[in-house]
């Protein structure tokens, strides 16, 4: 490590740290988004099925479908904390 450190200036180290934080933020939002998507796809399919049978279920179906959306919001909060 010391050898590598010697080759890099302080600015370079700081820049790569900022870069890693940005990658981390991206991963947080992206992976959380995928998680939300996986969760929502099944619920959404079931909800659409339910409300084609009974239209009054639209509101409830919508709510059930968007519940996992909170996952990606957590990702977003983490991303902001990483970039702060």
């Amino acid at each position: 490590m010391t050898i590598e450190l010697a080759g890099a200036s302080i600015e370079q180290i700081a820049a790569s740290q900022a870069g890693l934080a940005a990658i981390g933020a991206g991963l947080a939002v992206g992976l959380a988004g995928i998680g939300s998507g996986i969760a929502e796809k099944d619920i959404g399919a079931a909800a659409v099925g339910a409300f084609t049978e009974k239209e009054e279920l639209f509101g409830k179906g919508l709510i059930m479908t968007v519940i996992p959306e909170t996952i990606v919001i957590f990702g977003f909060v983490i991303a902001i904390m990483l970039l702060m």
Binding site: I73, F74, F76
Partner: peptide, 12 residues
């Protein structure tokens, strides 16, 4: 807590 955090979508 998740309910309150959920309001951060107003920004997101």
């Amino acid at each position: 807590m998740t309910n309150i955090l959920s309001y951060s979508r107003l920004l997101a």
